[in-house]
Design a protein around this nucleic acid. Structure first.
Length: 593
RNA sequence: GGGGCCGUAGCUCAGCUUGGUUAGAGCACUCGACUGUCACUCGAGAGGUCGCGGGUUCGAGCCCCGUCGGCCCCGCCA
């Protein structure tokens, strides 16, 4: 890959790009003083720009003592312009840890153009020195962003964004922008609202996603659309959740599920290649039902085994307190077998128990096989044939939960993940992509029994299951699909309903009456009645993809100016109060507690 | 809305268990020495609202209550 010429009137080369091939060249550099070393005559300055570091030397016997003295007095993070000659370093003075370590620039001039206060947080950091606290890093973001790691992440983000545009554009997709000021939606996440000055008491909402707009673009005949779309959700944050985030949003017409998945796979492959690691040619698939049965979650981590197994038969008919009640109530006994798990300490097992309890379970039944014999509270009640059904090998530990699947699944998932980490069962470089398909259309609220959309209310039912809408709608599958990597959802999508009559039926099932549907989604319904092609699409969580490919552990490390977990921007100080006059103009009266 | 952890010099941390004279260290900073370093080295110095408020106590960085901020998790996130 050839670097573009970044030469300007102030500089001829990038600091970090200088190599042996430049030896003898007179260069002009601009950069930040990373570190300076004053040896009492000879002075070295490591100069930094976005390409990296280069050592600039000031030898008083060549430069005169005045220039060397000025170099010695440079503070960290000062911006300077330097003129000099790229020189090969003597063999013993090369630095193999530096990309530019074979050369140095012998300075002939030095000009301070950007004096700098002593940095509030260090940019240059010793090998074993800790990072500054994250709130300080966010408050002084312009300094933190100078660090090599964040520079790398931001540049990677740019490359992934460009690769996305190139891939989708080459595949015939049109990049079309949709409004940021849009209509509040009662469904889904809480909206960020923007008051209207012109219309007292009325509000725009920031989009949670461009969902309806992209469907209307299909109605309008744009056939293939994409957008790198900023989305907003006013919900509480996590390490992998920001209030504003970026989606790669894709929609296409005259497509079925397979067509969308093929494009999504191609894009994934391109992005992983751009990120420096190849994605598999074909991504395996698993049904939602299968994922829940074997992994207890709809985004299974397939980098390791320990699948959930049903061992109800081993306990059926037994008078054993842990399992009897659950089995009689129609529940099951399920769990995982942990290879080598018999060696886990009492303390570790208690910690697992705590995890189960925090996930809503009553506790774990633990059975291990040591030297051929079962050990644990259930060992006495299980005879040979029942014990055999557990299929525990020597040294294995069985961890079981009894009860309803809806309660046991999340707990089993947590246990499986925790154990995998504890036992180091996850290979370092493993990548396990999987498509999860055949999601249910609806989920039933546990208390009220009311139906809600699993994906969103515009998702098409599986054609085989349309009859179920009239009888047992909660059993109907949707044409919805999620792409999962290592237990993380990368993206998800669906084929949409393009038949207005079917859309009306689905709204009815969701408890949305005609009038409400018209008020909330009228412009979409009118669109569908105007002649809608079959269409569907997918949206990827772009920030999360960058995070994975950057090897970062927090979204904040791949977003230039992120928010804290309290949705604050520490750098610019948002949100903030506004003058009373501004509120008056917006017809807003703020009540304070 | 709930739970957990953290807050001491510009930065990273120790001190808190068991309250007691002047709150320490490394880095950074200032001054000085040093001509091949690359986390340069060496010497000296300056630097503190112990997040904030209240309480207990003869006495609080340390104990208690509240509060603010950060991080992680549950709820929430069609």
């Amino acid at each position: 890959m050839s670097e573009p010429a970044l030469a300007t009137t102030h500089r001829s080369h990038l600091c970090g790009a200088l190599r042996a091939e430049h030896v003898g060249t007179t260069v002009r550099l601009g950069g930040w003083v990373h570190r300076a070393r004053d040896l009492g005559g000879l002075v070295f300055v490591d100069l930094r720009d976005r390409a990296g570091l280069v050592q600039v030397s000031f030898d008083p016997s060549r430069t005169g003592s005045e220039l060397a003295a000025r170099a010695a007095s440079l503070g960290a993070e000062t911006v300077v312009l330097v003129e000099g000659v790229v020189t090969e370093r003597p063999a013993a003075m090369r630095n193999p840890d530096m990309a530019t370590g074979d050369v140095e620039v012998r300075a002939t001039t030095l000009r301070v153009v950007g004096p700098a206060d002593t940095p509030a947080i260090p940019v240059a950091r010793g090998k074993s020195e800790q990072l500054a606290a994250e709130d300080l890093r966010l408050r002084h973001r312009f300094l933190d962003l100078r660090r090599e790691e964040l520079q790398h992440n931001v540049i990677l983000r740019h490359r992934l964004m460009q690769r996305t545009r190139r891939y989708l554009s080459d595949a015939g997709f049109l990049e079309i922008e949709t409004p940021i000021l849009t209509k509040p939606t009662p469904e889904g996440a809480r909206d960020y609202l923007v008051p209207s000055r012109v219309h007292a008491g009325e509000f725009y909402a920031l989009p949670q996603s461009p969902q309806i707009y992209k469907q209307l673009l299909m109605v309008s005949g744009f056939d293939r659309y994409f957008q790198i779309a900023r989305c907003f959700r006013d919900e509480d944050l996590r390490a992998d959740r920001q209030p504003e985030f970026t989606q790669i949003d894709v929609e296409a017409s005259f497509v079925g599920q397979e067509d969308v998945m093929r494009v999504a796979e191609g894009l994934t492959r391109a992005l992983w290649e751009e990120g420096g690691s190849a994605a598999p040619a074909e991504i395996p698939r698993m049904s939602y039902a299968d994922a829940m049965e074997r992994y207890g979650i709809d985004r299974p981590d397939l980098r390791y085994g320990m699948e959930i197994e049903d061992v109800s038969d081993a306990f059926r008919g037994l008078d054993f307190p842990f399992t009897s009640a659950a089995l009689e109530a129609g529940g099951r006994v399920r769990g995982i077998r942990v290879p080598g798990g018999a060696a886990l300490s009492r303390k570790q097992l208690d910690e697992l128990d705590a995890i189960v309890k925090s996930a809503g379970g009553r506790g774990l039944l633990r059975i291990k096989r040591v030297n051929g014999a079962l050990e644990g509270p259930a060992a006495k009640v299980l005879d040979e044939s029942r014990a055999a059904k557990l299929r525990l090998a020597d040294g294995e530990l069985g961890l079981y939960l009894a009860g309803e699947d809806r309660l046991a699944n999340p707990a089993l998932d947590r246990v499986r993940q925790d154990v995998a980490q504890r036992m180091r069962l996850i290979p370092d470089d493993a990548r396990a992509f999987v498509w999860v398909t055949d999601f249910p259309m609806f989920e039933r609220d546990a208390a009220s029994g009311a139906l809600g959309a699993v994906h969103h209310p515009f998702t098409a039912p599986h054609p085989d299951d349309v009859p179920l809408l009239a009888t047992e709608p909660w059993k109907a599958r949707a044409l919805a699909y999620d792409l999962v990597l290592n237990g993380t959802e990368l993206g998800g999508g669906s084929i949409r309903i393009s038949d207005p009559a079917l859309q009306a039926r689905v709204f009815a099932l969701l408890g949305v009456d005609d009038e409400t549907a018209r008020a909330r989604f009228g412009f979409l319904l009118e669109g569908l009645r105007a002649g809608a092609p079959p269409h569907g699409g997918i949206a990827f969580g772009f920030d999360r993809i960058v995070m994975l490919l950057a090897g970062a552990t927090s979204l904040r490390d791949v977003i230039a100016f992120p928010k804290t977990t309290a949705a604050r921007a520490l750098f610019e100080g948002a949100p903030s109060p506004v003058p009373a006059a501004d509120l008056t103009e917006l017809h807003i009266n703020v009540e304070r507690e």
